[in-house]
Design a protein around this nucleic acid. Sequence first.
DNA 1: TCATATCGGACTCAACCGGTCCGTTACTAG
DNA 2: CTAGTAACGGACCGGTTGAGTCCGATATGA
Lengths: 157, 157
Amino acid sequence: MFKVSRKSEYALMAIQHMARLAPDAVVSVADLAAQEDIPADLLAKVLQGLKRAGLLIASKGAGGGYRLARPAGEIRFLEVVRPFEEQIAVVSCHSPVTDCQRTDACSLRDPMSVLNAYLMRQFEQMTMELFVSPHTWLTTGPRTTTPAEATSLGRRA
Amino acid sequence: MFKVSRKSEYALMAIQHMARLAPDAVVSVADLAAQEDIPADLLAKVLQGLKRAGLLIASKGAGGGYRLARPAGEIRFLEVVRPFEEQIAVVSCHSPVTDCQRTDACSLRDPMSVLNAYLMRQFEQMTMELFVSPHTWLTTGPRTTTPAEATSLGRRA
DNA sequence: TCATATCGGACTCAACCGGTCCGTTACTAG
DNA sequence: CTAGTAACGGACCGGTTGAGTCCGATATGA
Ligand code: FES
Ligand code: FES
């Protein structure tokens, strides 16, 4: 359960890597693949995906490559991963692509939605800054939500 | 990402179902399968797994079946699901069964372990009581940990 | 002793996923 | 202007995994 796909892992690595470079540095697939030891063809797909998601900006031709569309602190974990995970839900009930009939009658739906919503919130709060400088992130914390709200699992709806 | 296997779903349904019966009621695979509309042979496997995990008690022979080993409030979500998910980790780094080399050099390991530990804690706090009477659970909340501790993501280690 | 249930191994089939290959398009350095 | 470079993206492939089935073995109560 909840292991991300390998593409997602590569995506995380890529963004982490780029975030450590100079703000608008451009890096090619080939370079990145070599340095992070990732199969180049596959990494290409991943970066294309990230570009389509608006996280990266591509420039073709000689001397081209990819660069971050915005600073790491403004990129959320969920955004990085979403292009490569069609199923982002704990249980079949949620998520558009459901093979499982029973959807309405399902007795798991309601209780699970509590958990689901909660996890989502966490993943949205977590920015890629955590991957660049864990320490500052840990002391700074997520920005969008107050810590108090984070207790809401097990309290109100 | 993080969708549980179908077996886990069945496991959750089964325990939820049994928790709604009289405390020590015994139910057979066949009955349960019929009532919850689950392929019987498969459900059998699932219940065997839950028994091996110590969550259910089986009695063979005529009039036999399964019953809960302890009340729902003392069964944690993670326990129910674990027998059917060998990979309980967000990223390859963690989890014993890792195909991914790079384990030590991996730049994802540390930041992810923060998230990982946090999720684990959540899943451990959540009892199956949530599936039986969501309302009371929501107002009562998890018992093992104080709400204050729940804020720990994004704060200390 | 027979009907009933759990037990658990073996097996099938389909979907998915990581990975590869290759031709096309676009841009830029020279 | 041209040659080289790099992103783009579709097609394909093999291995693994997961859902589901079948069936014989074992235990047990009526
Ligand atoms: S598990 Fe199938 S709809 Fe809830
Ligand atoms: S992703 Fe392979 S070890 Fe971290």
